[in-house]
Write a protein that binds this DNA or RNA. Structure first.
Lengths: 106, 106
DNA sequence: TTAATAGTTCACAAATATATAAACTAATAA
DNA sequence: TTATTAGTTTATATATTTGTGAACTATTAA
């Protein structure tokens, strides 16, 4: 029986992207570092909820955080996350276009 | 209030990757088309379970299927899925290496 | 028509993920 | 010290995901 550990670990990284709020966070962090407060203002979610999502993203290794005074800063650990994410967005857009082509004939 | 529909749709694509079995399926379909039977033999899961996972992947738009006689064939709809997936794998490997660096000093 | 093979659908139980609110901790300022 | 700001943790309720087995449908062969 083949060892499937790698698939579990790999899917954990993917799970970190598998939520609308977390996708939005990746989108807005794209190429910059932002504070917790800034992310909260843009997304408009409860701080407890945001903290849980950010914490999940940090522990899955896609975000890194640092504290400066009272503020916590967050950024993507690597450009690759943003690139992979953009690639998925392209797949989405292509699929939406295909569906549109199918539907417009009716 | 900003419209978050795009984030929901985008996260649906990501959810299609957010499971160990589905990652394995993407891995083995990498550049070829396989039958249900072949995927089942490689992964070793129940056919009902496999069918549900494949169906989810098809309806989220990352796989396409075609029937030929008694057999159902599956393949990735686009190369981009495999590329995005490989990119995530690289992020995982980098993180594992970082953790290893941290741990080996103890 | 009957049987066999291939896969899908359904119902259900168990596990995980999510949002909320309240209580908590850390850092700075008064 | 006390208060304030910034964020985390915890408990809890709800929703979603997952695996299993049984029943079902579709295609081909006897």
């Amino acid at each position: 029986m083949k060892d499937k550990t790698i698939y579990i670990l790999h899917s954990n990284i993917c799970k970190a992207l598998a939520n609308p709020l977390r996708i939005e966070i990746i989108d807005i962090l794209n190429d910059k570092e932002l504070t917790f407060r800034e992310i909260q203002e843009i997304t408009g979610v409860l701080k407890s909820n945001l903290s849980q999502h950010l914490s999940l993203m940090v522990s899955s290794g896609i975000l890194s955080q640092r504290k400066e005074g009272l503020n916590m800063y967050f950024k993507l650990t690597t450009e690759k996350i943003a690139v992979a994410c953009r690639m998925m967005r392209e797949v989405l857009i292509e699929n939406l276009k295909k569906n549109h082509e199918l539907i417009k004939d009716y």
